[in-house]
Amino acid sequence: MAAIDIAGVSTVYPNGVRAVDDLDLAVADGELFALLGPSGCGKTTLLRTIAGLEQASAGTVGIGALDVTRLPPGDRRVAMVFQDYALFPHMTVAENIAYPLRVRRASKAAQRDAAERMSGDLSLTGLLDRRPGQLSGGQQQRTALARAVAADADVLLLDEPLSNLDARLRLEARTFLKRLQRELALTTVFVTHDQAEALALADRIAVMDAGRIRQLGTPREVFQRPADMFVANFIGSTPMNLLPGTVVDGQVEFAGTRLPASGVPGEVTVGIRPEYLRIAPDGVLSGRVSIVENLGVTSLVTLDCGVPVGVVVPEHEEPAVGDELRVSPAPGRVLLYGEDGRLR
């Protein structure tokens, strides 16, 4: 068990690409932490820097009380699950799970013991003598997890743990992963490009872009109050409405309407999540329905209010295309972004 402390870390590749740029981050002991961002944002490099597979060009990485910046991966007490799981194809499941013990020259009996214990915990019983090639995707993922847990490390690192599973299995694996992490209370950092996965799993999320952290917070904070327009765009399964507006006289004008707003006058972008808009007879925004997309229990309705505005409506309120509709934002859910893209 250990906290992770990253201070001023930069990781520069030999070709000059600055994948991680002067980054500070503290992950608490026992936390389930997500590094979220689009591909190429440096999240995997940061994970590999924590693991020691990439060398930090500047700054320090601490795990527990130990400064591990210059230590090789094997001495950092970290365990890692790779995106392709990296199960050794020539070893059985049992040999794979017990591999961390084999490296430390534990006895054969201890190795078998560990494999059996892990297989019980991760529902792999009866598969111990198979080869990885004979397992399903979910079983492979659990084998990789079992091997990482068997390493008895202080920190567990997961690189896109769910991305190689098909959609239905992914939900199951997500629940499984969260339960496992709670039971082990193991400090866990995982990398994902899927915002839904990060929101569902993590205790805290760092949203990354271009080697820096754009926002750090709980899933709720990141979802409700994105710190800038990049995060606002990235988080949420339906894209946030970002409407051009102007602040004048304690009011903000946008999409043909006005709402009370504090702050200095000037150009702003008004951010409202489609989920936080609801149909109301006295709604402040009005427009004609141009598109209706069925999302299952809800529908995403696009209103033409001069600019397109997305609204998520429950299935029993679904309007027809061409209807006039009035909607209102939920109180406290209208966000104003300044010209620099930051939350005002």
């Binding site: 597979l53 970290v78 890692m80 591999y99 490296v103």
Partner: peptide, 24 residues
């Protein structure tokens, strides 16, 4: 990733070669 995986679990270069690379 096979080698990196072995290295994270503490395998020395000789072990990486003997346990993973050569058998594969």
């Amino acid at each position: 990733s096979y080698e990196e995986s072995a290295r994270v679990f503490g395998a020395r270069p000789r072990q990486v070669l003997g346990h993973v690379v050569l058998p594969v």
